[in-house]
């Protein structure tokens, strides 16, 4: 059954696992349900398999075992409807297109009508005013990443996948984006999945944080973030925020120690 295009997507993983062809086990069986409309952060050490999980949910990587349903259907169905958007670790901007051209490309690929006003609004939202006509080669790493975020959001997807979207963005812009971006996806109740290395970012943006161990990834902790919205930068000094951040950090450390890695003792 094809998912209803007007209902935000619920993601259901049942014993989802991934082992690459060379025998590398990336993800141990994972069973989790991500309710529609929520924002979930995936946190874990580098190389633990978070991005692979995201790629499986995007339908770009087949799982080795288990099942994955998005809005009650396999990921392929949502993909066919162009109902999801992904911002990759690498901004992946096409170098022969301008910032505007790259954002408009998403609309073309999703077979949506041109939306000049929406494109302008997003360019402004990500702080690229005056750079709409610029080619990626002339932009800084952070500016490219912001353009890629705008591209991911322009199709108003039902499922938004963000793979370390703020990795190359400077601290001030990162804080600003963490405040501004949720305002675009919250009213639409977009189901959002975010891979990040920043505990602060995870707590600031999400309703729920899944903490993973080093590879092969196993779920170490599932932490609910019940802080009020909209969230402002000032919230980062709030005791409740700090308590949650501490909880995530402890879960991460526990995951590393559990994996019995040489650096776990440090």
């Amino acid at each position: 059954m094809a998912p209803d295009p007007h209902i935000p997507a619920e993601v259901v993983c049942e014993d989802l696992a991934k082992t690459f062809a060379d025998g590398t086990e990336v993800l141990r069986p994972l069973s989790v349900t991500l309710p529609s409309g929520g924002t979930t952060a995936l946190v874990g050490p580098s190389g633990c398999g978070k991005s692979t999980l995201l790629r499986m949910i995007a339908g770009l990587e087949p799982p080795s075992a288990g099942s994955l349903r998005i809005g009650g259907a396999p990921p392929r169905a949502l993909l066919k409807q162009a109902g999801l958007s992904m911002a990759f670790q690498d901004p992946s901007l096409l170098p022969w297109r301008s910032v505007r051209g790259n954002i408009e490309l998403a609309l073309k690929l999703a077979r949506r009508p041109a939306a000049p006003q929406a494109v302008d609004d997003l360019i402004r939202l990500v702080g690229l005013d005056g750079f709409a006509g610029a080619r990626p080669a002339t932009l800084s790493g952070g500016m490219r990443q912001r353009a890629a975020i705008a591209r991911a959001m322009v199709t108003e997807p039902r499922l938004l996948l963000l793979d370390e979207p703020f990795g190359a963005v400077d601290e001030l812009t990162r804080r600003q984006l963490a405040e501004d971006l949720p305002r675009t996806w919250e009213p639409r109740q977009t189901t959002t999945l975010l891979v990040t290395h920043s505990i602060t970012e995870a707590v600031m943006l999400s309703d729920r944080i899944l903490v993973f161990s080093p590879r092969p990834a196993t779920l170490v902790a599932d932490i609910a973030v019940d802080l009020p919205r909209p969230r402002r930068a000032a919230l980062t000094t709030d005791p409740a925020f700090l308590g949650l951040a501490e909880q995530v950090a402890a879960a991460l450390a526990e995951g590393v120690a559990g994996a019995n890695r040489p650096w776990a003792a440090q």
């Binding site: 995007a58 339908g59 770009l60 993909l79 066919k80 958007s85 992946s92 998403a106 690929l109 999703a110």
Partner: peptide, 11 residues
Amino acid sequence: SWFDLVRSYGR
């Protein structure tokens, strides 16, 4: 990743 981008829109 450029091909991933295209495929992520079901194309």
